[in-house]
Nucleic acid binder design. Sequence first.
DNA 1: TGTACATCAGTGAACGCGCGTTCACTGATGTAC
DNA 2: TGTACATCAGTGAACGCGCGTTCACTGATGTAC
Lengths: 205, 205
Amino acid sequence: VPATRAQIGQQKRERTRATLIAAAMRVFARLGPDAPTIDHFVEEAGLAKGTFYNHFETRDELLIAVASIVSDQLISEMLRIRTLSDPAERVGRAVRTFVRKAVSDPTWGWIIVRIALIAAPLGEEMRENLSIDINDGLKQGRFQSPSLQAAYDLVLGLGLMGMRSVLRGDAGVDHAEHVAQLVLAALAVPDAKEVAYRPIGPAAT
Amino acid sequence: VPATRAQIGQQKRERTRATLIAAAMRVFARLGPDAPTIDHFVEEAGLAKGTFYNHFETRDELLIAVASIVSDQLISEMLRIRTLSDPAERVGRAVRTFVRKAVSDPTWGWIIVRIALIAAPLGEEMRENLSIDINDGLKQGRFQSPSLQAAYDLVLGLGLMGMRSVLRGDAGVDHAEHVAQLVLAALAVPDAKEVAYRPIGPAAT
DNA sequence: TGTACATCAGTGAACGCGCGTTCACTGATGTAC
DNA sequence: TGTACATCAGTGAACGCGCGTTCACTGATGTAC
């Protein structure tokens, strides 16, 4: 089928928008949520300044777009892990996966570390999803914790700090497993080390 | 003794500087390290804009001054705790003290949470001091951890996230003890709960 | 088939506000005589 | 004791750069005939 003018235009628009968002991710990862200027984004993207305003009204709108994409990736990862039946394995796998992903995709990792706790949507999604898994473990007696909130602080705090360490190059190759092991040990999982190192195969229920 | 003109001037200067720094602490606590402008600081302090430049050359210099003060307070607190002989009690006490202090002095707490990981001196001081206590515990066999770095991420990550929870009003009255207990449990301290709740008396060696 | 036209994403010069920075001035207070 | 002077922290108006924002224009590409 021949492309109509409208279709061609839309495709170009979408490609430019994607270029801009990809550039914005690198910039936010490098400079954090507050410091970057419009010039930072368009220069990184290799586009004219006016182009920014063809796609976004404000700098904040771009930050939200970036946060939404990262948030969606987080959620889909959490949902894949949810197919595992053991809450300990779910929480351990989540921590381990995110720390490993920070190694393989530092831009993604720095965005999480630098804006995770600031951009509202991102933080809330993480919170909701984590709370489900932690609650499951507590109800089943697989976890012990003096409170849900403390367990939540444990997983999010140690997870983020573990990501930060590997991003800064301060940690060894097994850091993801080490961090997962400590999380599970804190929650009084007896086989914490075994679960933390369990090979990642096809999701077994 | 009658005050000389030079002394009077110096005293006034010091008072103004203190006013400015106290105002800057509230502003940094509220807005983070990047967002505030010079106008924010002088308005909060009730001073003229030019006065800022009588005391600091740049916005960054003020941030460093604030970070230094907070850092000094952190270190002196850590040094007081160092008089305790049991590494488990030292680490637990440190975490507990900082979370409690975030409750009683939210401005101080928010500064730690918002700029702890950004302002270099602050992060390094915390790192050095924590590493000493953690290393002691590992060498003495009081702690178990797959790596020093992971244990460090645990204490700093859970500590900061615990502070953040109480600052946001998301946690109960015993949150400091809950967080300390989880830290010690993660490090395989058998009497984690007992140590976390041990009354804070005069430092016993 | 070829040519003139319509559409629209992208462009970048121009504008103007906000914020960092300067500096001549004020006023409080000790000092000189 | 009283008065003129010196010093210096603090003041705030003024300046100008940087950055957000606008908009007339360009050029690529499909459409009309």
